[in-house]
Design a protein around this nucleic acid. Structure first.
Lengths: 185, 185
DNA sequence: CACTGTTTTCATGAATTTGTGAAACAATAT
DNA sequence: ATATTGTTTCACAAATTCATGAAAACAGTG
């Protein structure tokens, strides 16, 4: 049935599954539905850089239907990218780029806009008073965050680049030749 | 408090309920359970600055039991403050201070720490490879955000103070603090 | 135009989550 | 003490969400 390339690495699969579950828990605690969390966590933790729906299903050991349901909102939220290769009948999903978290952060812009809109609308219906004032402050906060988000991301990317250079500066540490290419599609 | 003196502003209560619901929707979309979202939204929108459990129940028109269940995690998350006055048998809940959103932001620190921990642990169990590298990046991102959070909040507070002074400072017109608001933009 | 491998939709059953009324539980004031 | 006021816990009913298998819908290939 499911052909495991090599079973000797059972240990590794366990560790991986555990890691995936751990990440998924954090995500669900932040309100992301379980299945979406698992898919994202798996894509984060697993070594491949893209996955077909069935690879995801196999990797997490759930039905393909569940994958289908989870992948759509993930793509919509911008946490997964769907790439379709010409001449292939399978869609491929991949985490956004190398820098996943920048993508995720930037994705929050529209959400903040919705806050701005909603608070503004609500304010327009409410009389003066502390409540309305708090709403206004909320609106201001969301607006501020929206303008600051790109800067924050930029700073993160700079920081990230710095970490990278210091890490790879003393390169010659591939360490584990296990880094076999799985992207030989 | 400023609740039903009689039933004069029925209109207003409707508008308020609508505003509360609107805010609550945004919160639930971010993963906060419905009841918690309503309580928080109500505390944000309503004019009072503190509420007993029963006032919350009345305001949202829901059983006190539901309030009790919703308030606990809110307090735990640091979104509500529970203040007990001596010589009163009722707990009072209030939004954190004037600057709600600073409090909320700062509250995210521990969560980021958990991410750092979880990713580190997961990494320690995984072999070298792209997946592990992505986990590491996640860890770095969370760490960065944790260190940057206070700065971000500080900048927001400065920005906020500026908004405040421009609004109330020169013009000596605190009567209508947000007269600048034109919704037809 | 059938054939094949894949993804999506749909109805179903299961599990989880919600909100409620009623009772138990403080803490105070009389 | 005991009555009073207010909060929390408990068991349960209702509503919602989940994940699955089976089958339909797609897209590419010979």
């Amino acid at each position: 049935m499911t052909e495991h390339a090599h079973e000797p690495e059972h240990q590794r699969d366990d560790a991986q599954a555990w890691a995936v579950e751990r990440m998924a828990v954090l995500l669900t605690e932040q309100g992301i539905p379980r299945m979406m969390a698992r898919v994202f966590a798996f894509a984060l933790v697993d070594d491949a850089d893209r996955y077909t729906a069935s690879e995801l299903a196999e990797g997490i050991r759930v039905s393909q239907a569940a994958i289908s349901g989870a992948v759509r909102p993930l793509v919509h939220m911008g946490l997964l990218d769907r790439v379709r290769e010409p001449g292939a009948r399978s869609d491929h999903y991949r985490l956004y780029d190398e820098d996943v978290w920048s993508a995720i952060m930037l994705q929050r812009g529209p959400l903040l806009e919705r806050w701005e809109q909603a608070t503004a609308e609500a304010m327009s219906q409410l009389p003066e008073g502390p409540g309305r004032r708090r709403l206004n402050e909320t609106r201001e906060f969301m607006a501020y965050m929206r303008t600051e988000l790109p800067n924050l991301v930029k700073r993160w990317q700079e920081h990230r680049a710095q970490l990278h250079t210091t890490q790879t500066g003393a390169e010659a540490t591939p360490a584990t030749p296990e880094a076999e290419d799985r992207e030989t599609h």
